[in-house]
Design a binder for these strands. Structure first.
Lengths: 240, 240
DNA sequence: CGCGGCTTTGATGTTCATCAAGTAAAGTGG
DNA sequence: CCACTTTACTTGATGAACATCAAAGCCGCG
């Protein structure tokens, strides 16, 4: 938790890449004119964050608009005495900067890589400039950001209405269906972090996972999870 | 809960007002050129919703961008068997349409007036058109919407981390400081709705209110609340 | 090797939802 | 207008769900 934010001026971290051939272009930067895309491309830094490294921290001044190119990050709030609350786990395209990036001076959330991740960083002023000039682009940004914030709010209210079994079922299915698209995967987070994400104590996360294992709903081997009975997990998730 | 959405074509409900002299102009529609403001003004409907009337409902097709001119509304999700969950209580300027208005086809939330309210409704296409043409306006909309969604997310995580006492203290202070700006006010919602807003059972809302009354933190007379010991309420809110 | 962080299980106690039952208030139809 | 129904409010009792505490094994790391 006390790791410093990665220095982005270490030469070896930089990756030169051509935005025109980037597969993300159509998602984040559709509707840009060629010269606008160029303006972003030459000012962009692509930085690699290793698992555990912090992209930005709550309270720091916002200088960049960033989006995730590859990898997985968590964003979370730190609550005084080191009690974190994870707001969301974001995969590429999911994480279009922090949602307050245009309305606040400082980051409202911290972001840390939970898998090795590539993050593209564009100076905020460059994005603002283009928003002001290109309304179609602005509308695209609005759509993306509202989708993100709406999914956060929806997930939050969903989780709140479930009991512990339902929450664990929810998060197991979330990784299987939303993140990894497969029924067997390695958890990218610790049991404690799962607790921080779905509002329960670490011990109870473990207890429920063990219970699910005993009930043959899943197989567990350390971080590796294999879903054995998805139908029943979905029932638990819906009715729990 | 089964009330139908108010028909907006009843002649007597319409209010003609001139956007140029509207005190909201600088908040929602700053950066508009005069002809753009005119374009909105002539297509705008201002509709009065009486307490209890529904502005729009989850699942309905989105046709309007709306914002609250006066009054107070709740927006909430309905959870199958009539179990509502209130996401937010919004006062004027706070409620700049629903946050998914530009990214979804249907409303993701229902909105109901909890005090008599005036709502301005502008056809969505008219707003879109101006966003595409006027980047400064787009940036203003982005800022407003992200502020709203951020405050929802923050409130949600805040409330989740509190015990029942802390939650009641939170909501009492919320009405006093954010909504009414006074230490004595009439609750605009029932005990049940308070429970739906801060995630607790109706009975426990009542129990906590009674406890606070016995402890001389507040005075209660039906819907009327008077805060007697704000310092201690704040302590409960912070440490609860 | 020893230390700290992560994981696991069991025991304990508190918090909170639910049930039950009753009063008050507000809307509804004759 | 009054009987009737429904909805809101209130209090107490009960039990379940969940957090917390405690103790121990495990693993990686300096």
């Amino acid at each position: 938790m006390d790791k410093t934010v990665k220095k982005i001026d270490q030469q070896e971290e930089h990756i030169r890449c051509d935005c025109k051939s980037c597969e993300l272009q159509n998602l984040v930067f559709e509707h840009l004119l060629e010269n606008e895309l160029d303006a972003i491309c030459i000012r962009k830094e692509t930085v690699v964050f290793k698992k555990g490294e912090t992209v930005c921290r709550m309270g720091d001044e916002i200088k960049f608009f960033h989006y995730l190119k590859t990898g997985l990050v968590k964003f979370y709030k730190t609550n005084g005495v080191g009690k974190d609350q994870i707001i969301r786990i974001a995969k590429p395209f999911d994480f279009i900067s922090l949602i307050t990036v245009f309305s606040a001076k400082e980051y409202q959330y911290s972001v840390t890589a939970i898998e090795d991740s590539e993050v593209c960083m564009v100076p905020l002023w460059a994005i603002r400039e283009i928003i002001e000039r290109n309304g179609k682009f602005a509308l695209g940004i609005i759509q993306k950001m509202t989708q993100v914030s709406d999914s956060i709010i929806t997930a939050n209210t969903d989780i709140n209405s479930k009991n512990l079994r339902g929450r664990i079922a929810y998060i197991l299915l979330y990784f299987a269906e939303d993140i990894y698209k497969t029924d067997q995967y390695d958890l990218p987070v610790s049991r404690r972090e799962i607790g921080e994400l779905i509002e329960m104590s670490t011990e109870n996360v473990i207890r429920m996972l063990s219970e699910f294992r005993k009930d043959k709903l899943i197989a567990i081997d350390g971080k590796n999870i294999k879903i054995l009975n998805k139908v029943f997990l979905k029932k638990l998730c819906s009715f729990g």
